[in-house]
Computed example of a mutant assay.
Amino acid sequence: MTPEQKLKHLGLILPTVPTPIANFVMWRQAGSLLYLSGQGPRKEDGSTVVGRLGLNRSVEDGYKDARQIGLQMLATIRQAVGSLDRVEAVIKLLGMVNAEPSFGDHPKVINGCSDLLVEVLGDAGKHARSAVGMGSLPGGMSVEIEAIIQIKDA
């Protein structure tokens, strides 16, 4: 089953790719590599999910936030290259968690995105990854994730 077929089979609907809020683009391709700008989780109305892990967001909340970012990343990939079927491999994720200093479950939060990418892309979704805590994130967002994706020739 192709990634596009898998997406339909799972009943997943990709959100609209957000418009950048500053002087940058959501993606940039260099050769076969597609660099995705960092994104935070967005609600259906387009507003950002805010909160701090270990204070007012739980690990389960953070996992859902990271999964939402994964859906947004898939939408960004599709916008950039036309189809998820062109993904050769997810190379690297950088997951940043807005967390209290005592919070230590950053990897469990970022698993929300990682699990989704493997669910939809199969082995091509497996990736290298960093999951780190931050003292703050833009707009108070709970999680921010950026990625590097390898794309197949059209």
Results as ranks from 00 to 15, higher is better:
3 P>V: 11
4 E>N: 13
5 Q>P: 14
5 Q>I: 15
7 L>A: 00
8 K>I: 10
8 K>L: 15
9 H>P: 09
10 L>H: 02
12 L>S: 05
12 L>F: 10
13 I>W: 04
14 L>K: 07
14 L>Q: 07
14 L>M: 11
16 T>E: 15
16 T>M: 12
17 V>I: 09
20 P>Y: 03
22 A>M: 15
26 M>Q: 13
26 M>E: 13
26 M>R: 14
27 W>H: 12
27 W>C: 13
28 R>E: 15
32 S>A: 15
33 L>K: 12
33 L>F: 08
35 Y>K: 01
35 Y>C: 08
38 G>Y: 03
39 Q>V: 09
40 G>Y: 07
41 P>L: 03
42 R>I: 03
44 E>K: 15
44 E>M: 10
47 S>T: 15
49 V>R: 12
50 V>W: 01
51 G>D: 04
51 G>V: 02
54 G>I: 08
56 N>H: 07
57 R>I: 01
59 V>H: 03
64 K>L: 06
65 D>L: 01
67 R>I: 06
69 I>T: 02
70 G>K: 06
72 Q>E: 13
72 Q>K: 13
72 Q>L: 10
73 M>Q: 09
74 L>E: 01
74 L>P: 00
77 I>N: 05
77 I>G: 01
81 V>D: 11
82 G>T: 11
83 S>V: 08
83 S>D: 07
84 L>A: 00
84 L>N: 00
84 L>H: 02
88 E>P: 07
88 E>F: 04
90 V>F: 08
91 I>W: 05
92 K>H: 13
92 K>S: 08
92 K>L: 05
92 K>E: 14
92 K>Y: 08
93 L>M: 03
93 L>Q: 10
95 G>V: 03
95 G>Q: 10
96 M>F: 04
96 M>D: 11
97 V>E: 10
99 A>N: 06
100 E>G: 00
100 E>K: 07
101 P>D: 14
101 P>E: 12
102 S>A: 14
103 F>C: 09
104 G>A: 09
104 G>W: 04
108 K>A: 13
108 K>T: 06
111 N>F: 12
111 N>H: 13
112 G>A: 03
113 C>M: 10
114 S>R: 11
116 L>N: 00
116 L>K: 00
117 L>R: 01
118 V>Q: 13
118 V>N: 10
118 V>C: 14
118 V>K: 09
119 E>D: 12
122 G>V: 06
122 G>Q: 03
124 A>E: 11
127 H>C: 04
128 A>S: 11
128 A>Y: 09
129 R>D: 10
129 R>Q: 15
129 R>N: 04
132 V>A: 10
132 V>R: 00
132 V>C: 03
132 V>T: 12
133 G>H: 01
133 G>K: 00
134 M>Q: 07
135 G>Q: 08
135 G>C: 11
136 S>C: 04
137 L>P: 00
141 M>Q: 14
141 M>P: 00
144 E>H: 13
144 E>W: 05
144 E>S: 15
145 I>G: 05
148 I>A: 09
148 I>C: 03
149 I>W: 01
150 Q>V: 01
152 K>G: 07
152 K>E: 14
153 D>I: 02
153 D>M: 07
154 A>P: 03
